[in-house]
Design a protein around this nucleic acid. Sequence first.
DNA 1: CAGTGGTCTAGACCACGAC
DNA 2: TCGTGGTCTAGACCACTGT
Lengths: 252, 252
Amino acid sequence: MATHRTSTPLYRRLARQLQERIDAGTYTAGARLPSEPELSAEFDVNRLTVRQAVAELERAGTIEIRRGVGTFVRPPAVRVSIDVDPRSQRVDLGSVHAALHSRDGEEVVAAPPVTGSAEDLEAAGRLGRAPGELSRLESVIRLGAEVRTVSSYWLPSALLPPGFDRPGLRGNLVPELARAAGIELEYDWRAFGAIGADLADAELLGLPVGTPLLVREGVSCTPDGAPALYVRRRIVGSSARFVLHYREHPDR
Amino acid sequence: MATHRTSTPLYRRLARQLQERIDAGTYTAGARLPSEPELSAEFDVNRLTVRQAVAELERAGTIEIRRGVGTFVRPPAVRVSIDVDPRSQRVDLGSVHAALHSRDGEEVVAAPPVTGSAEDLEAAGRLGRAPGELSRLESVIRLGAEVRTVSSYWLPSALLPPGFDRPGLRGNLVPELARAAGIELEYDWRAFGAIGADLADAELLGLPVGTPLLVREGVSCTPDGAPALYVRRRIVGSSARFVLHYREHPDR
DNA sequence: CAGTGGTCTAGACCACGAC
DNA sequence: TCGTGGTCTAGACCACTGT
């Protein structure tokens, strides 16, 4: 197997073979794959080549690698479904939180200064403000013990109640912030996208760089239409999805 | 630099240093990074270690590697924004297509048999049918010359008009299918998630395995509420996002 | 053609988890 | 302590791109 007449790289053909075994049930969900030295011997390839194949399957989401233990076939992902009523115009104070929060809720981890970074400029543009008028908060939301969501908030500094920029603060950030600031918030718009975890998010989430994240971002405004908050959440893709129901009596 | 007293691996520290240079503007958007041998010499590490660092930054989306040419700092992603009216209950025949389609539109690439695979079973469950009653279509949507969306459709075989399972068929699949079948389709529900490209999708998209994809899936039904179509689209995360507007007069 | 990134090997040592 | 995956090196050759 060490030679290759085709142009498909060895590690990819190995990955395909392993994927076929998983699809065929040779390795069932939850089962341990042969160790790297074993695969290396079986297919007569270098261990590094095995690792390339295995790394691809992990990025594809079909296996999970546990250091010091082994690599295992991933069972189908169980995602938390968060319902969004597409006709409601009001912020549902807690729909996201109810589904994603652990008992400890959201935790502020930092309040970095708003400089002129690309992120800051984009946020400023969304809010129709100058970067200098804004404050920024970073928070994490845990599911059980693990961080599953990282959020960034930008808002006019005048609307940031004292103490909310203190790292370690816990609670349901948006509703508590609105209450403390004495304002009402409603959705202006929300958008969904997907990106890979960058170095900073990967560290916060304890996951590999490039892990697929669902991005949900948007602007909330006060009832008179003034933009008051830009939020950008990155949610681990394998742990949640957002569902919009369009019929009065959902079938399932 | 070759020794490390900290537990942070060498390649990750290298990745951070490169990221810092990009953030600081030492390497500006579009600029070429030093070649792998050059970085290897500058930091006095093996070329494979350089490659690990560079691969991480590519997965993080901050650089782009072009074989035979060099590695370049990615300019900020330009995503197509697809507007979704959250109050409309009707399928907007073409909103997605208008934004994502090239002149050639969507192209059927396969009509694989519906076996008992995990995907098939999930689709059958969503439609409230047995897998044996269903047909399946696979299609791609190009943006320019490149595939940017892969879609899978499941529908009762009785609703599949003759000829629609012919690979190479081009057009606006869903509306043309509805017309040919003589039915009206409206949204039942839609969901957003994020996953990494698996081996098959990566090949169709011509992108690395694990590339973040935005998943938009859902069931459409006939006006009487009977589920008629389950669709699951995988859209390259860097090329599109879905926007929901909640106010009558969007600010931007 | 020269230079770039892509693949593959052989071998070494380390960090982690379970026993 | 052992077996697992994680990191790092040195060196070789290949495939692609632009000139």
